[in-house]
Design a protein around this nucleic acid. Structure first.
Lengths: 183, 183
DNA sequence: ACATGGGTAGAGCGATCATTCTACTTTTCT
DNA sequence: AGAAAAGTAGAATGATCGCTCTACCCATGT
């Protein structure tokens, strides 16, 4: 079951993603979530808390999105990049919500922490998957490369189109894995 | 010789880079550029024009920064990525000013155009360099990969540190070139 | 000498911002 | 049924925003 707070957080996520952070005043957020100002402030007592709430919602959504997929082989490792391609095609393609938030609020400690936490967990995702299929390799180093490709793909997609970006990232990932002796 | 407008644009660039776009009101920009409000508005008749001016200044700075370097071989192609590493170490490491601006002003046509123009020219930079050393290869496709690595490196640097990001990008670039038969 | 162009300082304007508050209604639980 | 909790609408507040305007200053060139 989803609580009211979670529902509102989802609405905030969607609105920040569609319209950016700067252009969305609290009144617009309220209208988009279809709640009263009082209720909105009850769950998210400041605009900063609304941003953090939206990011936490997006964090959950995205890791849910990555769940499943091949359990072994190189596909297991590449799966997050493939799923990012699906996300860009099916959900949204407006850059990284976390990095956009960081760009907009560079001196909010709470937002910064939420972003860094999400990105650290994403890097872990690649490490864990690599550890599963190639524990004898330099997992740390290869995971860093895959993480970099994931970030680059997100940004390139909004500039050059999703499909070109997805293809480039997957090709580069395979080349990087091959160079490390992972086929 | 640098005109007054160019000097102010440089100040705007620096301020947006250091403090982000959202937190900088026009009065703060004025103070940072050490001019009067009237003069600032004379050269940049709106806040949007100030953002565009800063981006155009950054565009020039960055392509100047990429100039020079090895004239042949794989180093010629990798040079922009090496120089990005220098930039992140010596100049600033706060993500991409252009993408940050786009995140902050998603529905300003002028800003969007300035950003897309810069990124298109950056992609061209890789194409031209590839054309020089490997005109028989699929320049378009390989350039896309290098562009993606450049973008990913910029974002990864502020999350995981410049040096790790630089190493990962260079390694991935070499692997991608090797996979295409460019040594 | 003095007009002119380009500069300064900073007050003022209307709009919008995040946030709080009052007053009322609906839902939920016992 | 009735109390308590949780919702609604939306006005009010004070701060800040982008931007304009007035009034004055100081170089420079003929």
């Amino acid at each position: 079951m989803t609580t009211r707070k979670e529902k509102i957080a989802g609405d905030l996520d969607r609105q920040f993603a569609e319209m950016g952070f700067a252009e969305q005043g609290v009144e617009a957020l309220r209208a988009g979530a279809d709640v009263s100002l009082r209720t909105l402030y009850k769950y998210f007592p400041s605009r900063e808390a609304m941003v953090v709430g939206a990011l936490e919602h997006r964090d959950k959504s995205y890791f849910d999105w990555l769940a499943g997929g091949p359990e072994s082989g190189i596909e297991h490792v590449l799966h997050p990049i493939v799923r990012l391609g699906d996300w860009l095609r099916e959900v949204a393609n407006t850059g990284c919500l976390f990095l956009n938030a960081l760009a907009e609020h560079p001196d909010s400690a709470a937002i910064r922490e939420t972003v860094l936490d999400h990105k650290a967990r994403l890097a872990d995702e690649f490490r864990i998957r690599l550890q599963t299929i190639a524990p004898d390799k330099d997992v740390e180093r290869i995971a860093e490369t895959l993480f970099l490709l994931h970030e680059g793909m997100t940004q390139t997609a909004r500039l050059h189109g999703r499909d070109r970006a997805t293809e480039a990232a997957l090709r580069a990932a395979k080349a990087a894995l091959a160079a490390e002796g992972i086929a």
